[in-house]
Design a binder for these strands. Structure first.
Lengths: 187, 187
DNA sequence: CGCGCGATTGAGTAATTTCAAATCTAGTGG
DNA sequence: CCACTAGATTTGAAATTACTCAATCGCGCG
C-alpha cells in the first residue's frame, strides 16, 4: 500500500530504501466511509491527505445553501483545504467522501519536519505544487474560453473515470452549470 | 531596486547580507516597453520574471481570435508561462506589457541552481507557489459562486488599483464577460 | 411493491451575447 | 488652441444561452 506513495514520490525524485523508510513513518494510514467528512467548514486544518483509494470532493457552501465543487480528488491526488492548511485559518471548505476512501495523513508538523530535514522532499513538494498550479490555471482557462457545453465535453475527455464514478449533479456543480442544463447537453 | 526583491524574499525567509549577495547575481535586470511581448505563443520559455515596476497581462488567444486574460501581474508578482516553463514545452500564452515594465529575470537554470545550492531558497519558492495555488483556487471559486456582476464587484474590491490602470475591456476579458455586459454593470 | 435518488423534460424567465451604431476621451499635428 | 483620429466606452435591439420551478421518468434496493 505504501508502495503507491513511494512510486508517486519517485516520479519526481529518487529515493533509497533507507530514505523511504525514514519518510514513511511521517504518514498515518486512515480510512473514511462514503459520505464521511474529512475537512469540515469552520475547523482548523493541520493535515493534508494523499489519496490511496477512493474519491472525494472539496466543496464550498453558498449562503443560500448551494454547493459548489472546487475539486474532485482521486487516487494519487493530494487534498486538503489548502488556504486553511497553509495560513492556519479555519476551513471555508467541506471535504467529504464520494466513495469509501483510504488516505495517508500528513500533518502540518510532519510536513515541515520532512521538508526541513530532507531537502529532497522539500524539492518534491515544490515541484508538486508547481504542477498543481499549472493545473488550476488550465481550469481557469476552461471558464474563459469554453461555454458550459464545451466545458462538459472537455471534462469528460480529460477525466473519463469521473463520468462513471460521480452523479451528473456533482459534475454540473464542478462545471458551474445547473444540473438541468447539463442534462440537456447529453441530448 | 534590488532591495525590493530582498524585502519580498524576506517576507518568507530571513537572509544575511552575504546570502543575498549570493542570490542577487542569479537575476538580471531587464526593461520592456508598453505593448512589448515578454513571452510569445509557440516559443520555448526558460525564464521567469519578478515584476519590479509596471503591469503585464498573460493571455490565451482563442482560435477565433478572442483574447482571454488568465492573469494580470504587477509589482512583486512572479510571472511567466508556467506550463511551458515547468514542463519545457512551447508557450501557449502570450505575455505582454500594459505599461512600461521593469523585471528581474530568473532563468530556469539559475532557479534550479539556487534551489539546489540553497535549501532556504527552495523553501521560499515552495511557500510562494503554495500561496499562488491558494490564490488560483479562490479565483476558480469566484467563477462558481458569483455571477458576472458580482465577480466584477469582487475584483474591484480586491484590486482597486486595477480599476485605475487597465481599460475595462481587459477587465471584462479577465472576468469572462463581454465588454458590453461589463459596461452595463457600472450603471 | 413502493420508496428515494438521480436524471430528464417542459415552460417561462432572466442573464448574457452579438452586432451595429453612437458617444466620449486623450493624444497629435497643424 | 483647435480639429482630427484611434481607442475605449456606452447604448440599443434581437438572438442565444442558461436558470428556475415544477412535474415526470427510471431504476436499484429494501
Amino acid at each position: 500500500m505504501s508502495l503507491r506513495l513511494r512510486k508517486h514520490i519517485e516520479e519526481i525524485i529518487t529515493l533509497t530504501d533507507a530514505e523511504f523508510d525514514y519518510i514513511l513513518p511521517h504518514f498515518e494510514l486512515k480510512k473514511f466511509r462514503k459520505h464521511q467528512f474529512v475537512v469540515q467548514e469552520g475547523n482548523f486544518v493541520d493535515q493534508e491527505y494523499f489519496v490511496l483509494e477512493g474519491l472525494l470532493k472539496s466543496t464550498y457552501l453558498n449562503d443560500d445553501g448551494k454547493e459548489h465543487i472546487l475539486q474532485f480528488s482521486m487516487e494519487n491526488w493530494w487534498v486538503t483545504d489548502y488556504q486553511a492548511f497553509y495560513y492556519h485559518e479555519k476551513a471555508t471548505l467541506n471535504i467529504d467522501c464520494i466513495e469509501d476512501v483510504t488516505v495517508l495523513v500528513l500533518t502540518d508538523f510532519n510536513k515541515n519536519k520532512l521538508c526541513t530535514e530532507m531537502h529532497k522532499m522539500e524539492h518534491f513538494f515544490r515541484i508538486k505544487t508547481n504542477m498543481g498550479y499549472v493545473g488550476l490555471q488550465q481550469r481557469i482557462l476552461t471558464f474563459l474560453k469554453f461555454d458550459a457545453r464545451s466545458r462538459y465535453k472537455h471534462l469528460i475527455e480529460k477525466y473519463p473515470q469521473l463520468y462513471q464514478r460521480v452523479p451528473k449533479t456533482l459534475m454540473a456543480s464542478y462545471l458551474g452549470v445547473s444540473r438541468e442544463t447539463l442534462s440537456r447537453f447529453s441530448a
